[in-house]
Design a protein around this nucleic acid. Structure first.
Lengths: 97, 97
DNA sequence: TAACTATATGAATATCTGTTCATATATAAA
DNA sequence: TTTATATATGAACAGATATTCATATAGTTA
């Protein structure tokens, strides 16, 4: 019982909280197998540049995305396979409901 | 690109939103391999009976927990292996950060 | 340098969410 | 039937969160 200590539980819930917003999930979905700049993301998911930027900041802070600069643009991609794995497990659960 | 439609994205984010609260994650953690009644959960995770009951309602509505009545008490358990799987994947991600 | 494009960010606002408190309901025991 | 225990629930409140709008920053091109 209670194998996991409170601090870790809070970390886990904060990780999932990031996945708990549809704009962020849309961004993550768009970034699967793709490297996209901010305005491409905004255009693909149909959300304002500002809103995307705010959410990317949160994704960056949680280390779920990484980015690299190229000229005028900043290209974002998923930080590691874990992100896609969590996303896909969520998909599966939804599909089986 | 955008293989997944908007409705499904919203379902996915709503699933993760459930995991995005530490009280609910504590409940889920307590229920791994255990069947517990409301007051046991409240006592184990140190949260008021009312708060636990409110959160169990949300977990029930999302079909993440199931329950059975036994006399005066109502025993809750995880709805299926998916719930534990998602939780454990979250754990792994945290551990590797 | 001036104009343009891409991105970030702060403030304001509206909405959502979780807890508490009081209380209702239901079962069990005396 | 009265009392006690377990659970659920509604209202109220406080705190969190996402978007918008305006604007700042920084790199690029003319």
């Amino acid at each position: 019982m209670q194998l996991i200590d409170e601090d870790k539980i809070i970390d886990i819930s904060e990780l999932f909280k990031i996945f708990g917003d549809s704009t962020r999930v849309k961004i993550i979905n768009a970034l699967i197998d793709n490297e996209l700049c901010v305005c491409e993301i905004a255009s693909i998911i149909n959300v304002s540049q500002s809103a995307v930027s705010h959410q990317l900041r949160i994704l960056k802070a949680s280390k779920l995305v990484k980015y690299k600069k190229n000229g005028n643009c900043i290209y974002y991609s998923l930080a590691d396979e874990h992100v896609e794995k969590i996303f896909k497990l969520g998909c599966e659960h939804i599909n089986e409901l």
